[in-house]
Amino acid sequence: MDSAIEKHCSELVARERSGHTALIERNVLYVWGGYVSIADDEVFLPNDEIWLYDLERGVWEMCRMSGEVPPPMSGTCGCSLNGDMYIFGGCDDNSQTNQLYCVNLLDGKYTWRKVSHKSGSPPSPRDKLSCWVFNDRLIYFGGYGHKQLDDINNNRSFLMDEASWMDDIYWGWNNEVHMFDPTSASWSEPHTSGCAPDPRAAHASATLCHKGYVCGGRIRETRTSDIYCLDLESWTWSEIVPASNVPVGRSWHTLTAISDSGLFLFGGLSIDCKPMSDGWVFDVGTKKWREFEHPYMNKPRLWHTACQGKDSDVIVFGGSCNYILLVDTGHCNDALVFQIQPYPLFRICEDYIAKNVKNCKMLEKQLPFVPPKLLPAVQKRISFFQTTKKI
């Protein structure tokens, strides 16, 4: 059997992984890349396949990819723009990279193309960075990677890792902001002002309106829970000082937009290298954190992905439940659905019918009388709950 395919309860499911890329388009979760631990080795997962999880039916599908396929990688930065998935950077068998690739998720062909630039210069090779999408442009921040000594301008934008260097090449963390415009195929480095965050990697970020938010991450040997905002119109940084208790410092966590003023933080690796399972909601208006109760407190995750789904759900997939620098770490392949906001009435009714139709003869008899425009949605939800009960 293909090492990347697992049969579980007669259903096809994506293999467990960490450091992968995941996006949601039209209520389908797309998963690419990442790695698993096998014995003493870290093994990249196949680069010529993409996994699709139908969030309405709860069914996985694997599709082959073609074209200018990127190398197998982890730690890439993925984002979605107009139905295209872009990945930048990451770490392959040779080291960090600074290549940009694109694939259309909606045409059903899944043909990769390597994106060339006509002007400007791409960021230096790096992984564990983050991205904001604004005004049809891709804006990248931070990460861990390498530069030649002549390219290190100052210690404020690049923090050298004193334990990692070779000849005139140095590894370290950065707080650079780079922008790619797909229309003009151009790279640029906007001049920012204000109070910028320290250089970091394995942080989390999210976009709200015209602002990009950064939370936590690793800065040398420490992990933080600070939060910064970059105005993507004026290019002005500002530090946000929370008006309430804050989560503990962490890296390899996620931050997901859930409303016009809300951000959801989940998981990560704490300052004392403890895998986390706590969830927090940050209100950018009041500048207050509040801890969020959820049913997955026994499922810590780090280096997972989190995407905003239907009705402000947050879909967390994969990641590790252990400290990933240990051998044979416990990678995961389940999708955790966090209900952050109250559901609309239709969603409540739809889910109630889907959960109970097989145990209630009255509901089962009345199902054919559901209006034709609504019946397909209800049938998909029935399929979803039947499938997830098996797994």
Rank of each mutant, 00 (worst) to 15 (best):
R113Y: 06
K7R: 15
R113P: 02
L129M: 08
L45P: 00
E56A: 09
S74C: 13
I38M: 08
L29Y: 11
Y30D: 07
A22C: 13
D150H: 10
E11M: 14
D54P: 03
E11R: 13
D92P: 01
L149E: 12
W32E: 03
Y140G: 02
I5E: 11
I139K: 01
W132A: 02
G58L: 14
E56L: 11
W112E: 11
G143C: 09
V13S: 06
E61I: 08
W60K: 08
E11Y: 13
T111H: 04
V115N: 02
D151V: 06
Y144C: 01
N98Y: 01
T97D: 03
V13A: 14
H117C: 10
S124T: 00
K147V: 08
K114Q: 11
H8D: 15
R26Q: 14
V103I: 15
V31H: 11
N98R: 02
E42Y: 09
Y110A: 10
V28A: 10
N98I: 03
G83R: 02
E42I: 09
D41I: 08
H8M: 14
R137W: 00
W132T: 06
E56Y: 09
L55G: 01
N27W: 07
V31W: 09
G142E: 03
T76Y: 06
N47I: 07
A39I: 08
V36I: 12
D40A: 14
S95C: 12
N82I: 14
P123G: 07
V43W: 00
E56W: 05
E6V: 10
V31K: 03
G78Y: 09
T111E: 13
L12A: 15
E61D: 15
V115F: 03
S18Q: 10
C102A: 05
R17E: 05
F88L: 09
C77Y: 06
D127S: 06
V13G: 08
G143L: 02
V28S: 07
H146D: 14
R126M: 02
M85K: 00
V36R: 10
K118L: 13
S95T: 06
P72T: 01
R137P: 01
N135T: 03
M85N: 07
E68L: 15
W60D: 06
W132K: 00
L52T: 01
V69E: 07
R126D: 01
D136F: 12
Y53A: 12
V103Y: 08
S10V: 15
P123C: 03
L105K: 09
I24L: 11
D151F: 07
G142K: 01
C77R: 02
L106Q: 11
V115L: 02
V28I: 15
P72A: 03
T111M: 10
R17K: 12
P122M: 01
V43T: 09
E68T: 12
G145L: 12
G67E: 07
M65E: 14
S18P: 15
S10D: 15
G58S: 13
G120V: 04
I139Q: 09
D151Q: 13
I87A: 04
E6R: 04
P123N: 00
N47M: 08
I87L: 03
